[in-house]
């Protein structure tokens, strides 16, 4: 049973209210469920379908399109080693092989202790810092084999715990909209006129 917890349901409703149409909240809610369980469960997808009044098939259709959503348990730390051109030119292969040796798993799998999942990844927008990798989507730059060992050690020992939260947590903070200053989302069909600041006759464009 891994539906969203009551507190997350409250949060979900707050997120849904941010959008003119509720289905826009689908990806954020999938992230929310992944933050809760470390991966996206079928129950969570059914629950999200209920919250958005869509079918579970629509939820899984969207969810499986995106790389970041996992549908089985993964390690506490997902290590993505970039394989695209700039990193490849600067030794991504060697780094990946080293990672496989150190963690004792092949790329694409999870260590027995459930601590690490090692994955090949595509360009991480850090091409000048090649070879690079991400741990739970936090960048590590110009990673030497020695530095990789250090990193794994830091994660194992918990030294990096507050820097790198467990898999599923996207941001350690989250945008919160102050009720007193928020305009609020309106369904497009309920808006027919130009916003107040646009000169009435005119049409800014």
């Amino acid at each position: 049973m891994s539906r969203l917890t009551d507190s997350n349901v409250l949060l979900a409703h707050e997120i849904i209210r941010r959008y003119p149409r509720s289905k826009s909240a689908l990806i954020p809610l999938l992230h929310l469920s992944q933050e809760q369980n470390g991966y996206v469960t079928n129950d969570a997808m059914r629950h999200i379908a209920e919250l958005l009044d869509i079918t579970p098939a629509e939820v899984i259709g969207t969810a499986t399109f995106y790389e970041m959503f996992k549908f089985e348990p993964v390690g506490t730390y997902v290590i993505n080693v970039c394989q695209t051109l700039s990193c490849a030119l600067m030794g991504a292969d060697e780094l990946m092989h080293h990672a496989e040796d150190v963690l004792g798993v092949k790329a694409g799998s999870t260590t027995a202790d459930g601590m690490f999942t090692l994955e090949p990844a595509e360009c991480q927008a850090a091409c000048t810092e090649a070879p690079c990798l991400q741990v739970n989507y936090r960048h590590q730059y110009r990673v030497t084999t020695a530095e990789f060992d250090e990193l794994v050690d830091g994660l194992r020992s918990g030294r990096l715990a507050d820097e790198i939260p467990p898999h599923g947590t996207l941001g350690r903070n989250r945008q919160n909209l102050p009720a007193d200053r928020t305009v609020g989302a309106v369904p497009p069909e309920d808006v027919t006129e130009a916003p107040d600041w646009i000169p009435v006759a005119g049409d800014a464009s």
Binding site: N42, M45, R46, I54, T55, P56, A57, E58, V59, I60, G61, T64, F65, Y66
Partner: peptide, 19 residues
């Protein structure tokens, strides 16, 4: 009846129902 849907992506795209 949105009970069948594309799942996965690219070359892996399939038509499927929810489990």
């Amino acid at each position: 009846d949105k009970l069948i849907h594309f799942i996965e992506r690219g070359n892996q795209t399939q038509v499927m129902t929810f489990p």
